[in-house]
Amino acid sequence: MEQDPQFLIDVAKAKMPYGKYKGVSLIDLPENYVVWYHSKGFPKGKLGSMLGLVYELKLNGLEGIIRKIKNDY
C-alpha cells in the first residue's frame, strides 16, 4: 500500500480527539486499544484511515517510521 507522504506527516502529528486517550498522539496509543478499535471498527473518514495505518504499523512493529517523522516535525 503506497501512502502519500503528507498523510504520514498528518498521522505523526495527529492526536486522539476524544475518549480515554484524548490528546494522546495516535502512534502513542496503547497497542491493545488500537487492536480493540480494529475489532470494533475504526471511525469513518480521515481519523479512521489514520488509526488503520497505526494498527498496521503496530501489528508489524513499524511504529518507528511514524515516531521518526514525529520527531522531525
Results as ranks from 00 to 15, higher is better:
1 M>E: 03
1 M>K: 02
1 M>Q: 03
1 M>F: 08
4 D>N: 15
6 Q>L: 13
7 F>T: 10
7 F>P: 06
8 L>R: 12
10 D>R: 15
10 D>H: 13
10 D>V: 12
11 V>N: 09
14 A>Y: 10
14 A>T: 13
15 K>Y: 04
15 K>A: 09
16 M>N: 13
17 P>D: 12
17 P>C: 14
18 Y>A: 13
20 K>T: 13
22 K>W: 02
22 K>L: 00
23 G>R: 00
24 V>S: 05
25 S>H: 08
25 S>L: 12
26 L>C: 04
28 D>G: 06
29 L>Q: 08
29 L>N: 01
29 L>F: 00
29 L>G: 09
29 L>I: 10
29 L>P: 08
30 P>A: 05
30 P>H: 00
30 P>K: 01
31 E>W: 04
32 N>P: 01
32 N>Q: 06
32 N>M: 03
33 Y>T: 13
33 Y>H: 09
35 V>E: 07
35 V>N: 05
35 V>A: 03
35 V>K: 11
38 H>K: 03
38 H>I: 00
38 H>W: 04
39 S>H: 12
39 S>M: 11
40 K>I: 04
40 K>N: 08
40 K>Q: 14
41 G>D: 11
41 G>V: 13
42 F>K: 06
42 F>G: 06
43 P>S: 14
43 P>D: 13
45 G>D: 12
45 G>I: 14
46 K>S: 15
47 L>C: 08
47 L>R: 10
49 S>R: 14
49 S>E: 14
50 M>N: 07
50 M>T: 06
50 M>Q: 15
52 G>W: 02
52 G>S: 10
53 L>K: 12
53 L>W: 01
53 L>I: 05
54 V>N: 01
54 V>Y: 00
55 Y>C: 03
55 Y>T: 09
56 E>S: 04
57 L>Q: 02
57 L>T: 03
59 L>S: 03
59 L>G: 00
61 G>R: 01
61 G>K: 01
61 G>Q: 01
61 G>D: 02
63 E>L: 11
63 E>K: 02
64 G>T: 06
65 I>W: 02
66 I>R: 04
67 R>F: 03
67 R>W: 00
68 K>T: 12
68 K>F: 05
70 K>G: 05
71 N>P: 00
71 N>K: 06
71 N>A: 12
72 D>E: 13
72 D>P: 04
72 D>Q: 14
73 Y>Q: 14
73 Y>P: 09
